[in-house]
């Protein structure tokens, strides 16, 4: 069969797509003003779930890709009911603490391989299936964005009380989003387990959070394309320079975080940012047009 991409590039693209799914799960919550750091924990549920089902049972691949996300959705629902009433940084810390606890429990659970983790997980979705999944999800996100649900979500983030005034039940929306995000992240974790073939508790900690989080923040809350673009750019950068070991990749990454936040505090997809850029670029032209139209309409 004609291979469009070499195995190495297939791996890298799959890796990128999986990261993208995790970033989307985080940024969909940002759009509703939910600052959740639980991604490490739900990804771990997905990864370990898929790993266990794949190596310890004869279940087909699909079960391993569907069951863990369902479990993660349930867990997210319960967690959400307990702490979604918190705001901002408090919610962030609470969700992070939860994620770390999940990882610690897994790491000490001998059924899940304890500290050794699980090895020998077989291959999962091909890179093309993954690409298909990502395209479908992005399409769904765009559809939702333009729908009433999407508008309600943005309303909740901007001003909850007014949103309630026009009949938006903020709590229910938040719970639904939290649950869906949990399932999506767990699905990404399951795919990741199949891609790398190995899972162990050390991969779900702080560095995963920082990576996913940073991409989501840089992408911003205006449009899901922001996080997508941020993830693609940074991941490509990382993949090209990543193995030289010179460490400058880290510098670039850290510097980019700082600089981009300073230039675009609400992320790259912030509409006001683009408005500012466009008026700065197209300013003189506009003025000319306005002048001529003023002159012309007399």
């Amino acid at each position: 069969m004609f291979e469009l991409l070499s195995p190495y590039h297939q791996f890298q693209l799959s890796s990128l797509l999986i990261t993208l799914l995790m970033v989307l799960s985080v940024s969909m919550l940002f759009e509703a003003g939910i600052f959740s750091l639980a991604v490490g924990g739900v990804v771990a549920i997905g990864g370990y779930g898929a790993g266990l089902l794949s190596t310890r049972s004869e279940m087909p691949l699909m079960v391993g890709l569907v069951a863990p996300p369902v479990l993660a959705a349930l867990v997210s629902l319960l967690l959400g009911m307990a702490i979604l009433r918190l705001r901002g940084i408090y919610l962030a810390l609470g969700t992070f603490a939860f994620a770390q606890l999940v990882v610690i429990v897994i790491a000490n659970w001998s059924f899940a391989g304890a500290v050794d983790g699980i090895v020998g997980i077989g291959p999962g979705l091909s890179v093309w299936s993954l690409l298909g999944v990502v395209v479908v999800i992005c399409t769904l996100m765009e559809l939702v964005r333009r729908s009433r649900f999407g508008r309600a979500t943005r309303a909740i983030r901007l001003d909850e009380r007014t949103a309630a005034g026009v009949g938006v039940d903020a709590r229910r929306y938040r719970l639904v989003l939290f649950t869906i995000a949990g399932a999506l992240a767990a699905f990404a974790g399951a795919c990741d387990a199949h891609l790398v073939g190995v899972v162990s508790s050390d991969q779900y900690g702080f560095s995963l959070l920082v990576t996913v989080f940073a991409f989501a923040l840089i992408g911003g809350t205006g449009h899901w394309l922001g996080p997508v673009a941020a993830t693609i750019c940074f991941t490509l950068f990382r993949q090209s320079f990543g193995y030289s070991g010179s460490g400058w990749e880290q510098v670039g990454y850290g510097a980019a975080l700082v600089v981009i936040m300073l230039v675009a505090p609400n992320g790259l997809s912030d509409p006001s940012l683009w408005r500012r850029l466009r008026s700065a670029a197209g300013g003189p032209g506009r003025r000319r047009v306005a002048a001529s139209s003023v002159g012309g309409t007399r």
């Binding site: 791996f11 890796s15 990741d192 050390d202 993949q239 193995y243």
Partner: peptide, 9 residues
């Protein structure tokens, strides 16, 4: 970088 994905890649 002590990262499994990087090791595999």
């Amino acid at each position: 970088k002590a990262d499994k994905r990087d090791a595999a890649a």
